[in-house]
Each structure stands twice: as structure tokens, then as C-alpha cells.
Design a protein around this nucleic acid. Structure first.
Lengths: 157, 157
DNA sequence: GTGTTAGTTGAAGTGGACTTCAACTCAAGG
DNA sequence: CCTTGAGTTGAAGTCCACTTCAACTAACAC
């Protein structure tokens, strides 16, 4: 059991293509030592970084933001379990939000399917930002652009 | 209350940029009549199509698949509520699956945060069986690659 | 009729996340 | 040694979903 991994090994164990690992390195998300012959050798700890990267992507975070998060890890020492816990927790609310949004979409879709209207007028879908804030001209279709609506959006008739 | 909409009006009411609407038209997702002066005029029914497109994107369906779905609508007549209900329902299982996946990710993340391991060894995350790789535009799951691992994947040590 | 705002086109550009390529070099087994 | 598979690089390519641009033309209020 070697204390460092080749790029092929890291790829196999993380499920991430070698080309992607090199790409991550270019972006500064992971790092590698080099052998005399200039080949990458990954410290075991990099496996955790890659795991964190993939999880974060699932949550819908961009590589750029992931890099920022990873930058907040201590450089001096190998990140502790607490360090990782902190980072993981930082995505928690985004994950919650995503789940909440999709769940509401499902419920609303059920409702709209029920009547076949797909008008979404009465659906919270219209106001993805926050259903409770629903006042004024703010309501729009799913995935609104940040601009302000001239007409009562969401009315499909 | 005109019986057709300009691209600006459709944009305002759907929350989709005019450039995106033109793009959708090029892809064959929506259609428009033309005035004598060659400007687009959208039938009211197009609003429903755009709504469906945006909802579908939320679910994580590509424009290409959305086009296929829309192609299954009757051309002869204006789609009925039932037609729309059928299409919406067709995404339902994908939506369910996506929600299920994210929920599991959340739970597992909670577990991993608890111990700070981030190893995911004991997590369902690892389970390549139901990886649901490549679904939607969002990043894929941890351990997405369909290739078979030489080593027990997910072991970080 | 004039001015302003909205719309038209094809082509090119953007950004994110990678992958592919060509042309090498390295590492390890026999 | 020699062969073979794994690794190296920078540059370019890909895919998706759009956006931007330049150069025009339409529609509409006054």
C-alpha cells in the first residue's frame, strides 16, 4: 500500500478521469508532487479533496466556488475531520434549498397535472425565490431572470 | 388583449430572454407566425410550451429531450390539458429520482459530517448500482464513471 | 413624417467542464 | 535491454445553452 497514488490510481479510486484530475490541478483544486521523471504522485489526502469536489458538484456548486471553499482549508497541516465537516456543512443549506425547490416543483406539477392547466398561475412555481414574499409584480415563471416584469408574469392566457 | 404576442411580450411573460426564445425556435421547440414585416407573433399557446420548457429544464432535462417530448404533441390541434398533463407526468419519475438522490446525498453528508470522515465508504453515495450517472445538466454523482473499478472504489485510505 | 423603441438576421462569442490529440517520456516486467 | 502500458505537455476541440454584435427594418406614438 503505497503512500502516494499515480494519476491512474487516483482516477480509479475516485471515479474521476485523469484528464479531469489534471484539469482540477490546473484550476488549483488539487495538487500533486512529482517524481524525478515528472509524473504526478498524489498524497492520500487528495482523495478526500476529490471526494469533496464531486459531492459539491452534486449540490450544484461550480468548480470556482469549490476552489474558494478548498482554499479555506489550512495549508500548514493536513485538514482535520472538523475541517472537512465545516466545508461539507457549508453546502448544506444549498442542498436543502435545491431539494426544497425540486419538491415544490413536483407538488406543483402534480397540481397542474391534475387540472392539466400548466398555467402555473396559482402555483408557487411562479415565485421560486420565495413563495411567501409573493407580493407586487414579482411573480414570474420558473427560473426567472433577475429583471423586473412589466406585466403580471405567469399568466398564460 | 391581443391574440398574439410579440417576442418582447412573450419574453416578459415567460421570463425567458428574447435571444433564448429565438434559440428555442431554431431548435424547433416553439414556433411563431410572422407579420408582413417579418416580425414574430406568438400564438398564446406558445406560452404553455415555454412554461413546459422551463419546468423541464428544472427537472434536469436537456433541450434535445424536451424537443422530443414536444414533438409528441398533436400538430393538428391545440394541445389539450390532457396532452400537457401527459407530458408533465412523463418527467415525474425523473423528478422523483432527482429528489431522492439529493435527499440521500444530504443524509449521507450529515452522517459524514457527524464523523468528519468524508470517506463515504459507508455511504450510499458510493453505491455505483444506483448511481444515476449522467442525468441532467447538473454534475453527476460521485463515482459517475461507468467503468469498473479495479479497487474497491471510495476507500479513501 | 419623424423619432423612439422593438424587432430582424447570421455569425461569432461566452462559460463551464471537460476531452482529445500528437508527440513524446517514464516505469516496470521479462 | 526491450517492450508495453501509463504518464507528460500545450493546444485545440466539444457540448450545451445561450448571449452579443452589427447592420438593418418595423411598428407605433405624436
Amino acid at each position: 500500500m503505497p503512500d502516494s497514488l499515480t494519476i491512474g490510481e487516483l482516477s480509479a479510486r475516485s471515479g474521476v478521469a485523469p484528464s479531469a484530475l489534471r484539469y482540477y490541478e490546473r484550476l488549483g483544486l488539487i495538487r500533486a508532487d512529482r517524481t524525478g521523471g515528472n509524473q504526478r504522485r498524489y498524497a492520500r489526502a487528495e482523495l478526500r479533496r476529490v471526494a469533496f469536489i464531486r459531492i459539491s458538484q452534486q449540490v450544484g456548486v461550480s468548480l470556482d466556488e469549490i476552489r474558494e471553499a478548498l482554499d479555506s482549508l489550512p495549508e500548514a497541516r493536513t485538514p482535520s475531520p472538523q475541517d472537512w465537516a465545516r466545508l461539507s456543512a457549508s453546502w448544506r443549506s444549498r442542498l436543502d434549498e435545491r431539494i426544497r425547490l425540486l419538491s415544490r416543483l413536483r407538488d406543483d406539477l402534480d397540481g397542474c397535472i391534475g387540472c392539466g392547466c400548466l398555467s402555473l398561475q396559482r402555483c408557487t412555481l411562479n415565485n421560486p425565490e420565495d413563495a411567501l414574499a409573493g407580493e407586487g409584480p414579482g411573480a414570474r415563471l420558473v427560473l426567472p431572470r433577475p429583471t423586473v416584469d412589466p406585466t403580471p408574469a405567469g399568466s398564460l392566457t
